[in-house]
């Protein structure tokens, strides 16, 4: 009777949305969402007042401040020096370039405890570097500065490996175009190259930061773990667990999760804004 009948659903150009989306959600639930939800359910059992008391405890706050502060500082340092390393590795050919390139990944592979021990040996007052800076009144090992040093070590590959491919693909003609238009080298890099490197740099920063917040193994050796001063939040969680204070441990974990999620969301929104700004849709 009716010749024209509209399909119930307009077929997508890419088939398989239902299947892939279902698998994605199942997988994400199993691997990420359910374990994390457990943290919140456990801490919710505390009641709001008890949770607030645990979360605003002076020692907890100090540990959280150190964890997030040091992770941000280390990610920022890595953004600068990681960019430099990526630049040198991509732009120049020198003997041993492949070896340096391979060495970048070592912090990924090395057990973090080994990294922590090595760094401690180096920066301790009787270590090679520690003994050099001690007369200057500087102390790195067993202070919050030590935490930053460990996180810089751990986070470097993230920035290098995200910036490197983008820089390698960067169209050389764009730099030549800028030069023929009269731009100095500095103007070319700051106005043409750098804006193109912003998105991967931000991604690298976010990854290094996230890794830094969660880092445990290398820090506990170099930080000295002095409560209120050089004690990180993940360590405090372990301490609470060893005291069988599960509620206290999950409370700290929940606060960490919320702050991490908020910061990573902000970085992602920044990325999206940056993409929109340069005329990419979608």
């Amino acid at each position: 009777m009716t010749v024209l009948s509209l399909p119930k659903r307009s077929p997508s150009v890419l088939p398989g949305f239902g299947l892939t989306m279902g698998l994605t959600l199942t997988w994400l639930s199993l691997i990420i969402l359910i374990p994390l939800a457990g943290v919140f359910i456990k801490s919710a059992g505390l009641g709001w007042d008890a949770f607030l008391a645990l979360a605003t405890d002076a020692r907890t706050v100090a540990a959280l401040k150190l964890s997030f502060g040091a992770a941000l500082a280390a990610a920022a340092i890595n953004a600068v020096f990681g960019l430099l390393v990526a630049w040198v590795l991509v732009r120049y050919d020198f003997p041993g370039r492949r070896i340096v390139d391979a060495a970048i990944d070592l912090p990924f592979a090395l057990p973090t405890a080994v990294a922590g021990l090595a760094l401690t040996a180096l920066y301790a007052p009787n270590g090679w570097i520690g003994s050099l800076i001690e007369p200057l009144g500087l102390k790195i090992a067993y202070t919050s500065a030590g935490v930053v040093v460990a996180l810089v070590f751990i986070g470097l590959p993230f920035v290098v490996r995200t910036v490197q491919p983008v820089l390698a693909d960067f169209d050389k003609e764009l730099e030549e175009a800028a030069a023929t238009l009269g731009a100095t080298r500095f103007q070319t890099i700051s106005r043409i190259v750098f804006p193109a490197l912003m998105p991967p740099l931000l991604t690298g920063f976010a990854l290094a930061f996230a890794r830094g917040v969660g880092e445990y193994g290398s820090i506990i050796f170099i930080a000295g773990n002095i409560p209120y001063r050089s004690e990180i939040a993940p360590l405090l969680i372990v301490i609470r667990l060893e005291e069988f204070n599960y509620a206290g441990a999950t409370a700290i974990a929940a606060v960490m999760l919320v702050i991490s999620f908020a910061l990573l969301l902000v970085i992602n929104l920044l990325q999206a804004w940056n993409r929109r700004r340069i005329g990419f849709t979608g």
Partner: peptide, 19 residues
């Protein structure tokens, strides 16, 4: 230098600054 030459160069793929 390139700046002093003042050459207007149009690249095959245009090399526009996309940002």
């Amino acid at each position: 230098s390139l700046r002093e030459r003042r050459v207007g160069f149009v690249f095959q793929q245009y090399a526009l600054f996309r940002h």
